[in-house]
Simulated assay, not measured.
Amino acid sequence: MAPSSGRRAPPTAEELEERDIVGINKETVTNTVSNDYPDNYANEEQAWDKDVFRQNFRVQWHENKQFEAQFSLIGVDASIANAFRRILIAEIPTLAIDTVFMHNNTSVIQDEVLSHRLGLIPFTGGKKGLREWMGFWRKPADGEGTYDTTFDNNTISLKLKAKCTHNPSAPPNSKDPRELFHNAHLYARDITCEMLGGQPKYFSGADRIRPCNPDILITKMRPGQEVDIEMHMHKGFGWDHAKWSPVATASYRLMPTITITKPIVGEDAEKFAGCFMPGVVALEPVTRQEARVKGSGFEGHEGELKAVVKDPMRDTVSREVLRHDEFEGKVKLGRRRDHFIFSIESTGQWDSDELFVEAVKTLKKKCQVLRPQVTNMVYTY
């Protein structure tokens, strides 16, 4: 059968709402598959319009702390939201320990395991030096030495040197190794940074290179054990190794929708509220005006508590409410397809809100590279 070429009538408000909601049912999830061309439907004129997109697109911040941020990205397709998520995880550069020179290690942790632990310690420092002055280190080619490609603007030198010894001043009845011995525990704060060349200009004082969390435990030692390690920090991307990822987590979820289709009052309202996370559903008294409206379902319930949706963003969509027969046909659950709630947890080198702005810049650069290639492909064919 040939496809229809005629235009159909404009979609109703109910149809538009249905398109935008992923249905959450008792045992199934509906309307999950997107079309090949987002927001385009057969026999409808829906050419992309910048002004319409600008009108519908919004960014709402819910939490903005140095290491944690939560915001909503509204009015975009899942492909765009996922692009931001992948960029946050893998395509924003950071500085991390890359090369470890193990001069001596008599602790119980093997050299390769200790090197791995050191590489995963997040560091921070002066933002201008890290982002503008520091460049990328090039791995030496055959015949070149390690230091042939190592310069002050692409490598930070760190050292960790300590030996565990008895503490003659320890309390006689103490059993705490940290009191009995010197250097029984080595922490990230024990790593020292050696400034070379022009590095003091960018990494001095409050901008010094330092671990984001100085209390990260590296290893434990006992008398007679020691470590003597030199480390080189380089700039890299998360797609090469997770130690260069600027985030501990970067995820999103769709905005939950909860629609009460029939009034729920009294004890049922209290049970209804208990089916959701605290704060999602509130209990409010039925007003006199509501009780007087015929067909509202509140007739004769003046003063009783009714269930109202207060904050659906808190909901985890557990579907607990759909397991109770008394709520059959009284509530509809869903998720909004174009409302993405992002959660970003920074490892410390970037502030959490800076990461999203940097992700936008990165996606913009990708588009600038792709655009002429697509244009040339169109004119070629």
Rank of each mutant, 00 (worst) to 15 (best):
49 D>P: 04
152 D>P: 02
302 E>K: 07
283 L>R: 00
292 R>T: 13
310 K>A: 04
241 H>W: 04
17 E>W: 10
49 D>I: 08
344 I>L: 07
222 R>S: 01
365 K>G: 05
337 R>D: 07
90 A>L: 00
322 L>Q: 07
330 K>S: 08
210 R>V: 14
201 K>G: 10
234 H>Y: 06
289 Q>W: 09
295 G>R: 08
155 T>F: 00
177 P>I: 07
215 D>T: 09
159 K>H: 13
102 M>N: 12
283 L>Y: 02
264 I>M: 00
34 S>F: 10
25 N>A: 14
75 G>L: 07
67 F>T: 11
86 R>Q: 07
359 A>H: 02
221 M>C: 02
285 P>D: 00
50 K>H: 08
203 F>S: 06
316 T>E: 14
40 N>R: 13
303 G>N: 02
281 V>R: 01
131 R>Q: 10
345 E>S: 12
328 E>V: 11
236 G>Q: 03
143 G>M: 05
230 E>M: 14
298 F>M: 04
268 D>S: 11
60 Q>G: 03
55 Q>R: 15
69 A>P: 06
334 G>E: 09
242 A>Y: 01
2 A>Y: 13
339 H>C: 12
319 R>S: 01
269 A>M: 07
350 W>P: 06
139 K>Q: 15
43 N>A: 04
281 V>Y: 02
11 P>R: 08
60 Q>I: 14
323 R>N: 13
225 Q>R: 05
372 P>W: 02
362 T>G: 00
63 E>N: 12
265 V>N: 07
310 K>P: 03
363 L>K: 04
357 V>N: 00
136 F>I: 08
7 R>A: 13
129 G>W: 02
37 Y>I: 15
95 L>C: 13
124 T>R: 10
343 S>D: 14
34 S>E: 12
291 A>G: 11
258 I>T: 01
148 D>S: 08
161 K>S: 15
219 T>A: 14
371 R>H: 08
184 A>N: 02
379 Y>C: 00
164 C>Y: 05
317 V>N: 12
266 G>Y: 01
106 T>G: 04
27 E>M: 13
65 K>T: 11
350 W>R: 08
341 I>F: 12
67 F>G: 13
144 E>M: 03
334 G>F: 09
207 D>Y: 04
280 V>F: 03
105 N>K: 00
155 T>A: 04
143 G>N: 08
132 E>I: 07
321 V>K: 04
154 N>L: 07
41 Y>P: 05
271 K>H: 06
27 E>A: 14
101 F>W: 10
244 W>C: 04
177 P>A: 05
326 E>G: 00
222 R>L: 06
227 V>W: 03
123 F>Q: 04
335 R>G: 04
317 V>P: 05
259 T>G: 00
337 R>M: 10
55 Q>Y: 13
58 R>K: 15
247 V>K: 05
330 K>V: 05
222 R>T: 04
83 A>C: 02
227 V>G: 01
168 P>S: 06
65 K>R: 11
118 L>Q: 05
51 D>Y: 14
9 A>V: 14
16 L>H: 00
229 I>G: 10
123 F>Y: 00
112 E>V: 03
366 K>W: 11
64 N>F: 13
290 E>I: 10
